[in-house]
Design a protein around this nucleic acid. Structure first.
Length: 303
DNA sequence: CGGAGTGTTAGTCG
DNA sequence: CCGACTAACACTCC
């Protein structure tokens, strides 16, 4: 599930409960989800590390962690953090459970998953020194976690990501020139590729294109500057609104447990095929496969 | 029961 | 290099 607004929501929720906590151990039930490092090194580096900061880059959640020993040795000055990076892909969740069993965090909703933790999908279980826990659940097992020591390695992992669409570096002119560099790509596909703006997935790409009045099948080279401006504004507006609503949840899911999802009621086209266009044009929302993904759009309102 | 569909992206192939 | 396609996986829905 998680696209930019969902990961941002999870980051904000988890920051409130994770900053300052110290890892005691990690139970690795599905080793393949720990990428790029030997499991034994992963355990060793995690142990006695304190979470000092949470960041997000695109759809990745990044915890800055520091060995407690290093903090003591240097009296907390100029300690370089390591980076624990999560990608939830299609179905990952990060759920924090405090000592009383209360939950915070969230991700893709899995039926009954929150009633019982750990469950069949809890592939990594981090335990903190105070007995609280962080569960990494992932039904489809595409998600991953990695740990890198240097900021340089983190930069390597994010180097192909376009700018943060809500960040200062996201400028209309840069956005247009980036899209123009892929003249034969279709706008729907380019937006999903993370290259000109990061963090957009199928929900927000479809919603942004509807808002901007651009058909997902349009080739970039045929899109006018004015339309790109509208798209740029649409992306920012929709992402902000989605973050304010704490993300989107499709399907059934449990609220009240720190799980996410108020944006679903604002969706105009995503998974609304067959329904009347919300612009009251009389046309019905179409669904079309583009490179294996479902695009949703109004034939009348999107040119 | 079989097939399609699901919030992602890395890798391969032409 | 680009764009199209597929695999990684487990589940739900029609």
């Amino acid at each position: 599930m998680p696209e930019l607004p969902e990961v941002e929501t999870i980051k904000r929720q988890l920051a409130r409960v994770l900053i300052g906590r110290v890892f005691k151990s990690v139970e690795i039930r599905l080793p393949k989800q720990v990428k790029g490092i030997l499991v034994k090194d992963f355990r060793r580096l995690i142990r006695k590390s304190k979470i000092v900061k949470l960041e997000r880059r695109g759809k990745m959640l990044i915890m800055n962690i520091v060995k407690e020993d290093d903090i003591l040795r240097t009296e907390g000055k100029n300690v370089k953090p390591m980076f624990l990076i999560f990608h939830l892909k299609m179905s990952g969740q990060l759920i924090f459970k405090d000592k009383r069993g209360r939950l915070k965090g969230g991700g893709h909703p899995i039926k009954d998953a929150l009633n019982c933790l750990p469950n069949n999908y809890s592939h990594l279980i981090f335990e903190f020194a105070d007995g609280t826990k962080l569960f990494f659940n992932d039904l489809r097992q595409f998600g991953w976690v990695r740990l890198v020591i240097k900021r340089k390695e983190l930069e390597n992992l994010t180097k192909d990501l376009g700018p943060e669409p809500l960040g200062k570096n996201f400028k209309l002119q840069n956005f247009i020139s980036c899209l123009s560099q892929k003249p034969n790509s279709r706008i729907y596909q380019t937006l999903l590729s993370q290259s000109c703006a990061c963090g957009l997935g199928n929900i927000y790409v479809n919603e942004s294109l509807f808002y901007a009045g651009i058909k997902p099948t349009r080739k970039n080279k045929n899109i006018k500057k004015q339309e790109y401006k509208k798209l740029y504004q649409a992306i920012r507006k929709i992402l902000k609104k989605a973050i304010a609503a704490r993300g989107t949840s499709i399907d059934k899911y449990l609220d009240a447990l720190g799980n996410i999802g108020g944006f679903a009621k604002y969706l105009k086209v995503y998974q609304r095929q067959g329904q009347l266009c919300p612009h009251s044009c009389g046309s019905r929302i179409k669904r079309l496969k583009i490179n294996g993904r479902s695009a949703f759009f109004c034939q009348k309102c999107q040119k």
